[in-house]
């Protein structure tokens, strides 16, 4: 017979069969601890939904913000188009060589803010909140300035990591490499991700040798973006 936990899980996902529903209803009447557990998990379900809503709302606002960022940057399009013509001509002459810039665009996404959630209820407007609020809105120039200040004053390694992400987004891969290498000398929960972003920075610089070295470390660590790293390594070979 199905245990009580499974019964509650099926109740929460509205997938109880008729017989299970009967047993569930009976337990609810007879067993106070079962009733309390159901109440807690129903509440937890609702709370998780509320938190998930906040996360999704921030993410979607970020997608929209990127469009407005693009609009502002439209004057650079002419220059960018010219650069593209030059690079297409360049790559067309290198038959068979993978286009690192395309690989970079397909694979780079600034790492999400996991250290300081910005919610609509976050009242405090300290430096850290401001920095991550800019970061989540795609305002990387402002975020970068604050991450630099925060790292100088607190020496907390994860600011180096987010600084590097902002730099990559601002098309400053050389400086991003410096920040990531410094971050790799520390030990925080994000250092396993630094090799991946280091690979992204090298790709951006068209440095295939070092990009591959970093990707091999990603694979060796077997923690973060391993599948993506394997695919990229095959493409670069």
């Amino acid at each position: 017979m199905m245990d009580k936990d499974q019964l509650i899980t099926k109740f929460l996902t509205q997938s109880l069969s008729k017989e299970e529903q009967l047993r569930f209803d009976a337990l609810l009447l007879e067993d106070p601890s079962f009733k309390a557990e159901v109440k807690l998990l129903e509440d937890l379900n609702k709370v998780a939904e509320a938190e998930d809503d906040v996360m999704a709302r921030e993410m979607v606002a970020g997608f929209e913000a990127e469009h407005h960022g693009k609009k502002m940057a439209s004057i650079w399009w002419v220059a960018a188009s010219l650069a593209l013509v030059v690079s297409i001509t360049y790559f067309a002459t290198r038959q068979g060589a993978p286009d690192t810039q395309i690989l970079y665009t397909e694979n780079f996404e600034p790492y999400r803010n996991v250290v300081h959630p910005i919610t609509r209820t976050t009242q405090q407007k300290d430096l850290k909140t401001q920095a991550f609020a800019h970061y989540e809105k795609g305002e990387y120039r402002e975020a970068l300035e604050l991450f630099e200040k925060l790292y100088e004053t607190t020496n907390t390694p994860h600011f180096l990591f987010y600084k590097a992400n902002a730099l990559l987004q601002l098309n400053r891969p050389r400086e991003a490499i410096v920040a990531l290498q410094a971050h790799l000398k520390t030990k925080d929960t994000l250092t396993q991700k630094s090799h991946w972003y280091l690979a992204m920075a090298y790709l951006k610089l068209d440095d295939v040798v070092n990009a591959k070295k970093s990707l091999e470390r990603v694979v060796a660590q077997n923690k973060y973006n391993v599948k993506k790293a394997n695919v990229l390594l095959k493409t670069l070979d």
Binding site: T9, T13, L41, A48, E49, E51, D52
Partner: peptide
């Protein structure tokens, strides 16, 4: 983990 299990099912 809790969100994936309880909310997302």
């Amino acid at each position: 983990v809790l969100t994936l299990f309880y909310y997302r099912g």
